[in-house]
Amino acid sequence: MIFDFSIVPRYGPALLEGFLITLFICFIGLLLGLFIGGLICWLKIRFPGWGATLANTYIEFFRNTPFLIQVFLLYYVGPVFGISISAMTAGILGLGLYGGAYFAEIYRSGILSVHKGQAEAARALGMGEKSILYRIVIPQMWGLIMAPLTSQIITLVKESAILSVITVQELTFVGQRAISETYNYVEIYTLVAFLYWALVTALANLLKGLENYSTRYLNVRERSPNKLIFMKKQDVKLRS
């Protein structure tokens, strides 16, 4: 089998365009997910009774059903109720709703793992619960959650490939269309896989840098060692 390099100039521009769309939907979907996650986490902590029940139902649903089915529900069920959204909108919304369920739990375990003496010291000085949360607890939470957050962000990027099934014109979709025209699947899947791999690897390194920055106040010895220990098992896994 010989790698047919003529594929690169022929389909390169189209693949690149798909890649940019992948970047775009992932970025917007991620922002949406981080926001929804915050909302769900807030609901769970602020209203321990009904809020936690609601939040848990949301979290359990999105974590225990396939992303593909969630996307089908968004894209195909809406029109039945007279709400029509484009594949792209359904895709971004899907990524946001799905990511939010995971981010909510990551935030929460981060907040809970900030040592309780931190809040106590602030309380003893007369600070209010709200300032304690925003000025003492949440800033430290970021440093603690960067590792599981990174895994989840990477998972989100990889899940975005599933959106090709509902015809979002992203990288995987463009790749499949090219294959249906040329049958050069070895070359095209290699290129597509490489682009995803490069994106994920770059993202992992970028986020590692962000983790180091967000824990710059800790000395080197304290910085990494048990960052994974405090997380609940579900939050640490790196998954596709």
Partner: peptide, 12 residues
């Protein structure tokens, strides 16, 4: 590689 590539691509 397997961790860096979407599962749907791996299936194909």
């Amino acid at each position: 590689l397997l961790r860096g590539i979407p599962f749907i691509i791996q299936i194909f």
